[in-house]
């Protein structure tokens, strides 16, 4: 028995130890596909198989990227977008999590709010932009509002879910072992909700990144989304592609950083 069990743990430990090697493998595997596409694309562009105006070659896009990066233009727009994202997301976190805990704990409250929530959930954040502009003006507030709207529901709903999904068997252990109400909340309810809340945060973050770009496409004078509009009006497909790639890469990095935080915060989770 013990032999088998030790092995079980050993496997886990070796998994941890070889993480570095695994990471390299994972990166190589993840990069292989886009790299192939880029190489084929580059050849197709150089051989004149595609119109450079519609689809500039990767090397041209990269040239534009470096000029924009060096001049600081790209950084300025990215910073503008990220700033909005941080403001909006913070507002969401400050309101959605406490409200979610409250609604999760109150048994019947959800029957009153659920139909309204599912109605609101169906409306894409971008559809609100004109009305937000009307209400909040053309400046920053309307974009922040869109971000809050886009991220609020996943964070709120997952918090409610998290508070509700506490395993009653673990709660019973707490009762049987005479845990104080304070310990019940801190050691049972909160940790078991945290997992679900984090799922909501990740979903919310990727939602609002997408909504933000949408908002900037419609009404902004800075930001990554604005860069696309600018590229369109100035007929610069290179700029558009730089912006698109930046959006994808920045979004992935955001998600990755939340994943990292999740792993730090919840070392008890097997798979991240």
């Amino acid at each position: 028995m013990t032999l088998k069990n030790h092995k079980h743990l050993d496997n886990n430990l070796t998994q941890l130890n070889t993480n570095g090697k695994d990471a390299v493998k994972i990166i190589i595997r993840g990069i292989a596909f886009p790299l192939t596409i880029i190489i084929i694309w580059e050849f197709a562009a150089r051989l004149g198989l595609v119109n450079q105006y519609f689809l500039p070659s990767p090397s041209k896009i990269f040239d534009t990227f470096s000029t924009m990066f060096i001049s600081g233009e790209l950084g300025r727009h990215l910073l503008a977008s990220v700033k909005r994202l941080i403001y909006g997301f913070l507002i969401t976190v400050i309101f959605a999590i406490p409200l979610g805990i409250l609604v999760g704990k109150a048994k019947y409250f959800r029957y009153y709010v659920n139909p309204t929530l599912s109605f609101l959930q169906q409306i894409p954040p971008i559809a609100w932009i004109p009305i937000f502009i009307l209400w909040l003006g053309i400046d920053e507030a309307n974009k922040v509002a869109v971000i809050v709207y886009a991220s609020f529901f996943p964070v709120f709903l997952n918090t409610v879910q998290g508070v509700n999904s506490v395993d009653p068997k673990l709660v019973e252990v707490g009762r049987a072992y005479m845990l104080t109400p304070m310990k019940m909340v801190c050691r049972i309810y909160i940790p078991s909700a945290v997992m679900s809340i984090f799922v909501g945060l990740r979903l919310g973050l990727s939602n609002c990144w997408r909504a933000l770009v949408g908002a900037e496409l419609i009404a902004a004078s800075s930001g990554i989304g604005y860069l696309i509009t600018e590229g369109r009006t100035l007929s610069q497909p290179n700029t558009i592609f730089v912006a698109i790639f930046t959006i994808g890469i920045a979004g992935s990095l955001l998600d990755l950083s939340l994943k990292r935080a999740e792993k730090k915060l919840m070392p008890w989770k097997k798979d991240v």
Binding site: L170, Y177, R187, I188, P191, M266, W268
Partner: peptide, 28 residues
């Protein structure tokens, strides 16, 4: 109700997944 003079071992281990072995034991 439950008391300090009785301890239950359930059919399943029912350990808190977010606590290490020692923390699971020391918590109560």
């Amino acid at each position: 109700g439950p008391g300090y003079d009785r301890a239950v071992v359930f059919q399943e281990p029912r350990l808190f997944p977010w606590l290490t072995v020692e923390k699971n034991i020391s918590l109560p």
